[in-house]
């Protein structure tokens, strides 16, 4: 098992996922429920930051940075400007006649999609596992032993006096050097996918400027048209 998939399945990553997803869902619920529009916009900022955290958990670091820059930096500021330029900020979020039908539609949508997503047999990519399981357990055990003795060495022994170490310690050190070499080897021959997701930015740049270059240029034209349109709409006659 390579290093990145070990990190992804660790306990801390799972805790981070649950914290981030619960905070995103709660703050996006607050966006549609709080009566004070300004506070709703601040909860929207919190939801955007949490979604950036989910992108980081999904190994899309560039997209997380783009999310922070564009959504938190630009779109939230535009929405807050729009709130401040209009009246009735503190009591401006009443529902219309469709409150109960809308909640029913949203609930049905959520239930149907959850059912479909749990039922479908997705083609999950296989995680590379070049070493057998027994070897894994051995290596993990020796690795923890190694770190314990390593710390002891660093704190209590001077490297100059390393010739006075006990034979047991020397044996442990020999084991650890063997395990470390094996670890480096297993990192070296990890699959191509893990290599892609360890450094996505060059691949994204290559894709944007080679395969998707037409869409890239069209999006720039779209942004220009939106900018001109917004200026034309907002101009004092």
């Amino acid at each position: 098992m390579s290093l990145s998939s070990t990190i992804e399945s660790s306990v801390i990553t799972n805790i981070a996922f649950w914290v981030v997803s619960i905070s995103v869902i709660v703050s996006s619920f607050a966006v549609v429920q709080i009566r004070d529009l300004f506070r709703a916009a601040l909860f929207l900022v919190l939801a955007f930051i949490g979604i950036a955290g989910m992108f980081i958990l999904l190994r899309a670091e560039f997209l997380a940075v783009v999310q922070i820059l564009i959504y938190v930096g630009a779109i939230s500021v535009l929405i807050i400007f729009a709130i401040l330029m209009t009246r009735d900020v503190s009591d401006g979020n009443p529902p219309n006649r469709l409150k109960i039908p809308a909640s029913i539609v949203g609930l049905i949508f959520f239930l149907v999609f959850t059912f479909v997503m749990v039922q479908v047999d997705w083609n999950i990519q296989p995680h590379p596992d070049p070493l057998p399981d027994t070897y894994q357990e051995d290596s993990v055990e020796v690795y923890t032993k190694f770190s314990y003795f390593h710390v002891c060495f660093w704190f209590f022994c001077d490297p100059k006096h390393s010739d006075s170490e006990s034979p047991a310690d020397r044996e442990v050190q020999d084991d650890t050097s063997y395990v470390l070499d094996e670890k480096l080897d297993s990192d070296r021959d990890q699959s191509g996918l893990d290599k892609i997701f360890t450094d996505t930015i060059p691949s994204i740049a290559e894709l944007l400027l080679r395969d998707f270059v037409l869409a890239f240029e069209l999006v720039s034209i779209l942004l220009l048209a939106a900018m001109i349109g917004a200026l034309t709409l907002i101009r004092e006659k």
């Binding site: 549609v32 219309n96 409150k99 949203g106 949508f109």
Partner: peptide, 15 residues
């Protein structure tokens, strides 16, 4: 689903 509910059921266009 939360966004769908807010889009259908709110009167304020900023929401």
């Amino acid at each position: 689903a939360i966004g769908l509910y807010g889009t259908i059921s709110k009167r304020n266009v900023i929401t």
